[in-house]
């Protein structure tokens, strides 16, 4: 409610108290309710540029598409490269080109949801913009947060960017096949994650070789009736 108090003749104050981050949280809550109404489990997939977010969604979609109808909201500054890759795996995809934004927010995701056939979907992946800082501040209404990191980002990437790991349900340490040449110990990265977020489930993956995908599915609780056991 706006309270108007007059001050010094013509000038007056307008009290607003309009919280912008809270507004995002409210929109996120509305997105969550909409998804629940349709029985859709939504997963926010976050991580750096090149960590393997799109490959992760491709791998998960390939394994789960037999039993679940999957939708994807693909966030990118520009281009539809990632969205095109995921479409090939048979998912319903809405591309959100953020243009100049460094993160998806609940408003953009809400708009994308209006473009998806929600009544048909069981599972929704929301691929955030490649960034370890800004997405941490903006919940989207997803039920779970999956952070994909890779050993090629160096040994200190978790301790340097702790915020994104605090709210993560599952953290995938990807490209473990490159751990030795990169001189990075995935176990040390895992320890760093657990120091920030003891409740996180940490999974090691080599997504180019489709290794660890099943563990990610289990960690996300997508196992039952998913057909991923094979």
């Amino acid at each position: 409610m706006k309270v108007i108090e007059f001050q010094e003749g013509e000038s007056f104050d307008i009290e607003l108290e309009e919280d912008l981050l809270k507004r995002n949280q409210q929109l996120a809550q509305a997105n969550g309710q909409l998804l629940e109404k349709h029985g859709i489990l939504a997963i926010d997939v976050m991580g750096s540029v090149g960590s393997g977010k799109t490959t992760m969604i491709e791998r998960l979609s390939s394994r789960l598409c037999q039993t679940k109808t999957i939708g994807v909201v693909a966030g990118d500054l520009t281009t539809t490269i990632d969205a095109d890759r995921i479409v090939e795996k048979g998912a319903q995809v809405v591309e959100v080109n953020t243009g100049k934004e460094c993160h998806l927010d609940a408003n953009l995701v809400g708009k994308a949801l209006r473009e998806l056939p929600l009544e048909k979907l069981d599972l929704l992946f929301i691929e955030n913009v490649g960034n370890l800082i800004c997405p941490a501040e903006f919940p989207l209404g997803a039920h779970k947060r999956l952070v994909v990191i890779s050993v090629t980002e160096g040994p200190h990437m978790v301790v340097k960017h702790p915020h994104i790991f605090r709210g993560a349900d599952v953290v995938a340490i990807n490209k473990v096949e490159l751990a030795a040449p990169m001189k990075v110990d995935p176990e040390e990265l895992k320890k760093d994650v657990l120091a920030v977020n003891p409740g996180a489930q940490v999974v090691k993956t080599s997504l180019v070789q489709d290794q660890g995908t099943k563990d990610v599915i289990e960690a996300l609780g997508l196992m039952a009736g998913s057909g991923a056991e094979a």
């Binding site: 000038s11 104050d13 307008i14 009290e15 607003l16 108290e17 919280d19 912008l20 981050l21 809270k22």
Partner: peptide
Amino acid sequence: RECLVKKITVKK
């Protein structure tokens, strides 16, 4: 954890 526009002062 807030970021809000608390108040604005305007002239008519």
